[in-house]
Nucleic acid binder design. Structure first.
Lengths: 220, 220
DNA sequence: CACCTAATGTGGACGACGTCAACATGAATC
DNA sequence: GATTCATGTTGACGTCGTCCACATTAGGTG
């Protein structure tokens, strides 16, 4: 079982307001407080001490769960990628057939970024990068899981011959996935930065995703 | 003339090593030192004090030129966008005709990001955002100037009927520009984050940019 | 040239931060 | 019931961004 979940023992902090020495579920409380801070301030420049304050513990308690601030950010990122994955899966289920699923995923992806820009930035954020070695393994894993939703729908599109690739090789499928991901990722970023002009996210994301579709759809 | 350039009076710091009370060209020196720090550490978490140290002035001197650290970052971003614009223009000049120019711009764009990831991130960075109002005017302006290179080549492609748009309206041209920008921007970010797989930047950027071209090229 | 003023740089201070080390508490195990 | 070890607390250190008062000097004015 996941060490984070603690089903029986409800956190000691809830019932009695006389805060006990041990919190009971501090790790989760810290991640939640940090996410709230990121969402409120739209920035991950928050201090570890502020997170501790919100969780009602001393400024040093977080160090028992996260060796550095970076590790708390990484935990946030993992949760963020997981939320993204869930949203993409849900979006794909509302549509039928690879083409519509791809559009639905694209729109949902952009919406995910637009509804909490700071969290979206965080999961791709440079503060996670561990000294030239890329993101921590846990984060990379969560990112791959989210990417897998996209990989899936494209694989199905290619397999059912709705999407055109010059040859059905791994490299060709990878190219299409990378193109699609780059497009929605870039669009999300530009929207967040206010560089995508005055158009509204839902409209522009559908239009742009459809133009991706036009590029890869098999022509009669 | 640009107020930053000071042609006659060479900076007082260069000739005599007994540092004079006034630096002479501190603003430029600070921006250069900051860019060096960003490049070296691949992170813009540097301290203003470190920048001041490198420029050989007291920790408070920068405040005469930048009210806050954010303003120094903004100056860096302006310089970054300008460097990007120059690189894109140069790339466009190596090619002939809208199609090849577009590919050349795309490849150069991705290369710009890959050769200094931290600088690239910085210019789109959240630390610039001035309280929900987007980036400072100077940065937005520099960003538009860089974008203009892309706008130009696409406008020429549409005008000479090499690129296909359903109707030649402003909105349609904007859509194509946004799609193109989103694609190269997203690809650059994914590459920087190590999320684009094992393929090398030059190869993948050419492939992906060409697939963009396939999407918008007029078909016989 | 002498003077003045405004621009520019210095030094010190303050509160907040990340992190370390030493100590306190109490839940789980024997 | 005693012990152990994970978890939380207190205090300290060096650094940071920023504010304030003061020092220096460049450039315009007489």
């Amino acid at each position: 079982m996941n060490p984070h979940t603690r089903p029986e023992t409800t956190a000691r902090r809830n019932a009695s307001q006389s805060s006990p020495y041990h919190h009971g579920d501090l790790r989760r409380a810290l991640v939640e407080a940090a996410l709230a801070l990121v969402t409120e301030e739209q920035d991950w420049g928050f201090s570890l001490r502020e997170v501790a304050r919100r969780a009602g513990v001393s400024h040093n308690a977080p160090y028992r769960h996260f060796p550095e601030k970076r590790d708390l950010l990484a935990a946030l990122a993992v949760a963020g990628y997981e939320a993204l994955r869930v949203k993409l899966v849900a979006a794909a289920e509302t549509a039928e057939g690879p083409e519509d699923e791809l559009v639905a995923i694209g729109v949902a992806y952009v919406q995910f970024g637009a509804e909490n820009p700071a969290r979206y930035r965080l999961i791709f954020g440079p503060d996670l990068l561990t000294g030239g070695l890329g993101m921590p393994a846990s984060v990379a894993e969560a990112a791959q899981a989210a990417k897998a939703v996209l990989v899936d729908v494209i694989a199905r599109g290619v397999q059912t011959e709705r999407f055109a690739v010059s040859q059905d090789t791994q490299a060709e499928r990878d190219r299409v996935v990378l193109t699609a991901w780059a497009l929605v990722h870039g669009l999300t970023m530009l929207l967040i930065d206010g560089l995508a002009g005055p158009a509204l996210p839902p409209a522009v994301s559908e239009t742009v995703t459809r133009s991706l579709l036009d590029g890869i759809r098999k022509r009669p």
